[in-house]
């Protein structure tokens, strides 16, 4: 009974940010198309990509901003955490499907003017020809990338929300110091970079980027998504309202 207004609110919150993102993206690609026009006319081969990567970054940041305000609003209006989470997942899915479709359409339009390549095209994932299967798998692949970005962002922000000030401070300072200074020094001096290579391979594998086979990539993404969703809910289910 409270799911519908909760979902409506989450979509309302997302709408403004998505509109701003696409205005910026369309402006950027229009400017790129105009500025590349001269180069292309002179015979140079120019390839443009990055809309999906920008979308993933945007949706990760969107996920990072998705907790406090919406959670407080739900708590003010007597919505349970379970319903809040369900509405969040539904809105994340709707946003991800919507952006996957919009990005594909933008891709089709951009291809008319410039040499535009999507990430999926660059990875190919075993596809040698364009067709319905390729575009269908690309849409699904984009959807999984986008929803994963939102949920990982949500998990991180919920985890941060639940930490007390001391732990927040320790993590805010400790994590960058460890991962950007301490670990690289240890890794390069003692392991010849093997630790960072392994971390990179692990994330590439669980994010489905590693596999050259699209269905396997989707399966890996599904498993990874289920894991992040579970972690996110576990973090949220006993979260108290904080100032």
């Amino acid at each position: 009974m409270r799911f519908k207004p909760a979902l409506k609110y989450q979509i309302y919150e997302a709408k403004k940010q998505i509109i701003i993102f696409y205005i910026a993206a369309i402006l950027f690609y229009t400017l790129m198309a105009i500025s590349m026009g001269g180069l292309i006319n002179s015979g140079a081969r120019v390839t443009i990509s990055g809309l999906e990567a920008a979308s993933i970054i945007f949706l990760f940041v969107f996920g990072l901003n998705s907790h406090k305000s919406a959670f407080h609003m739900m708590m003010a209006n007597g919505v349970s955490r379970k319903t809040f989470f369900r509405s969040f997942l539904a809105s994340a899915a709707a946003v991800s499907i919507g952006m996957a479709v919009i990005n594909s359409l933008i891709g089709v339009i951009l291809k008319q003017f410039i040499d535009y390549r999507t990430i999926f095209e660059q990875l190919r994932h075993g596809y040698t020809a364009y067709g319905a299967a390729f575009f269908g798998m690309e849409l699904l692949w984009q959807f999984y990338c986008y929803i994963s970005a939102v949920i990982v962002g949500h998990f991180i922000t919920t985890l941060f929300y639940r930490m007390n000030k001391t732990v927040k401070l320790l993590v805010s300072i400790g994590a960058p110091v460890f991962f950007l200074i301490v670990l690289p020094i240890i890794d390069s001096n003692l392991f010849d970079g093997a630790v960072y290579n392994a971390i990179g391979r692990f994330f590439s594998y669980i994010s489905g980027l590693h596999s050259q086979n699209a269905p396997i990539s989707i399966c890996l993404k599904s498993a990874s998504l289920a894991l992040w969703t579970g972690l996110s809910y576990i973090t949220l289910r006993r979260a108290p309202v904080k100032a």
Binding site: M1, H72, M73, A76, N77, G78, V79
Partner: peptide
């Protein structure tokens, strides 16, 4: 919870 509205110390609206 739909039967309860709480006016709390904290303003929880954005």
């Amino acid at each position: 919870m739909s039967k309860v509205y709480c006016f709390g110390e904290q303003t929880l609206y954005p």
